[in-house]
Write a protein that binds this DNA or RNA. Structure first.
Lengths: 210, 210
DNA sequence: AATACGCTACGTAGTTACCCTCATTTTAAA
DNA sequence: TTTAAAATGAGGGTAACTACGTAGCGTATT
């Protein structure tokens, strides 16, 4: 996992790619260019970080379709959509689908670098959160069935003996699973465990409910 | 706090307002019309629910400005922006500012009712969450200084004696504040308390950190 | 001025809950 | 058959909850 962020440029028009690349490289960004959405998607690895600048209208996959593929793939790469002529419905669609910004050709340098900088910042944030969630997910995955059941009951706040009753096992056994779960989750205490569980989405956190 | 959702329509053009209102009323929506952003903002009460359909270009406050006022006011009303002629930069700006949708005049009925329905659903969700958060906030507000300090330490997972040391009071006193905090927060147990605290934003929930 | 109330603070004592060590049995997978 | 997970028990120590009392301090009410 490198810290290096790349600006991925996808456009079927080589002239557009080149001029974009030149502008951005001059501003110190690292660039990768692709002619088609497919070429980009194939080249993209799971640990790529940065942002994507992509044309909406292209032969093959459209920008919107590529964006959709990224979402399906669980990639958190921020997407900047390019469009030649103000195409409002498409812009709205792209924004709803999570595009972080929109560029109208021809673009001005100031707006471009600002957009890219914002996107890269967002990418860095995403990466942090994703890493956190992934790490907690890995720990969760190491729990056995029973340990996981006990964890679920713990974050609800059930006592050992209640958990024992619910799972039809002895309180002693619950203690053991509990200790194992705490160890595997690397939770320092119950409060910490609950926070980890919420971050991992194990429980819906909203709960004033009586 | 009524369950009734209202579609607020703001446009300086009476003809547009009327036709929109007719269309939407025919579909069973409750409508309120305003000629200017200011008139709408003044009429809007804190417990109004529904959505706002507003023109971008108007004398006085623009749609974007009204949107901004809503955000400043902490109103969670979903905003649908209307525009006469595909104005891309404005659309992007509005979406970034949190508009849920975009309508191009002239609008077709199908798209319109769908947009409004989505916006109203979102409004209902927002309301639920806002109510939850507000309720927890009210409980938090009833805590005394000390109780709040103890709560902060509790959600970190500190033991009573550690809390006692940190606050330079006796463990016995911590116990008392702890009990009061639990009672005022209506927390059934420590796990519940931690979840309430996270929902209220007392602690950053992300925390695999060692 | 007197009284009441709430917040803070502390102690003792009994009870429950939790955690750990030592030790054993069953079961299912490798 | 070896190994890992699961299950359980006895016993002891620590932490937490509850109940009952004491006490100073500031504010509001009478």
């Amino acid at each position: 996992m490198s810290d290096e962020q790349t600006v991925f440029i996808v456009d079927d028009d080589a002239a557009v790619r080149e001029s974009l690349a030149l502008l951005l490289e001059a501003s110190g960004f690292t660039i990768a260019q692709y002619e088609t959405g497919n070429a980009f998607l194939e080249a993209l690895s799971a640990d790529s970080t940065g942002c994507l600048i992509i044309d909406v209208r292209m032969p093959g996959l459209s920008g919107l379709e590529v964006q959709k593929r990224l979402v399906d793939r669980n990639a958190t790469l921020p997407v900047i959509i390019m469009t030649g002529h103000g195409d409002l419905p498409m812009a709205v669609k792209a924004m709803k689908a999570g595009a972080v910004d929109f560029l109208e050709k021809p673009f001005d340098l100031a707006g471009l670098t600002e957009s890219v900088t914002n996107a890269l910042n967002k990418s860095a944030e995403n990466l942090l959160e994703a890493n956190q969630a992934a790490e907690i997910g890995r720990r969760l995955a190491r729990l056995t069935e029973r340990e996981r059941q006990v964890l679920d009951e713990l974050v609800i706040g059930n006592l050992n003996k209640v958990i024992a009753f619910n799972l039809s096992i002895s309180p002693r056994t619950v203690e053991i699973h509990r200790a194992h779960a705490m160890e595997k989750m690397q939770a320092r205490n119950l409060a910490h465990l609950v926070r980890l569980a919420i971050t991992a989405g194990v429980v819906p956190n909203i709960s004033a409910a009586d």
